[in-house]
Design a protein around this nucleic acid. Structure first.
Lengths: 123, 123
DNA sequence: CTGAATCAGGGTGGTACCGCGAAGCTTCGT
DNA sequence: ACGAAGCTTCGCGGTACCACCCTGATTCAG
């Protein structure tokens, strides 16, 4: 029973969706660069430390990764767990986050079916 | 057997996804403002004229709508059909576009379940 | 025939903001 | 003391989005 909406509040990077349906928010949220990737890694590989995420998404800088993680936490999609004893920090999906898996599956299916390599794939 | 990829080419508004998986492209594409909405309207109400789309998505300016429609056509998601006799122009989904419906359904389901109104909904 | 209205956009200009790199800072382990 | 992990602060460039105005084609009223 989260109080969160899907607006991306941290650093005030959000769009005014006052008259747009809910799912436009969701798309905008997932479409934000790296968000989909982060959620996908967490879905597939479980809770991750910051450096593991950074390592698995090498093209995303620390700066941006922190930003995204804070947004995701603010939106109730992930939680940041600290283990006080060994000072370990892990990010894991909440239930709200886990339930992205249907969307992920659908998007994966579509992408696998319709993606065609172009110039951008050469390098 | 389209030759199209999911990059948004018109006006060069795309991201370099060279090392990112396919579905990140898809998210970025759908997450682009108004794209999800446009596809959703076409899915639910069939082929539409420009003015009908503009009317159903009032907060999207003509300028941006034209842009989005061109991108969607470039990406093989919609087609722009002209009827020479009565000079009618309609936009309709291709098969590639129709098959977004699974994604749309999943996103709708998630959004309906997890969306909570906040300040942004007052106005 | 003339004028108005509708449709499908194009052109310009401006601002907010998104994504980013670089570098510093704090806490912890050893 | 030194390095790694996990951020934070500063500042930048590009561009996405929008408002406003304009065009050309077609249709409709009278």
């Amino acid at each position: 029973m989260q109080m969160m909406s899907s607006q991306t509040k941290p650093e005030e990077g959000g769009v005014d969706f006052a008259l747009c349906p809910r799912f436009e928010q969701t798309f905008s949220f997932l479409g934000k660069k790296w968000n989909g990737l982060i959620i996908d890694v967490l879905l597939q590989e479980g809770p991750q430390r910051f450096k593991d995420l950074a390592h698995k998404i090498p093209r995303c800088s620390d700066r941006v990764l922190v930003e995204r993680l804070k947004e995701l936490e603010y939106n109730g999609v992930i939680v940041r767990r600290t283990f006080p004893d060994n000072s370990l920090i892990e990010y894991e999906l909440t239930q709200k986050g886990e339930e992205f898996k249907d969307i992920m599956a659908a998007v994966h299916a579509w992408s696998d079916k319709w993606y065609c390599p172009t110039e951008a794939d050469q390098k």
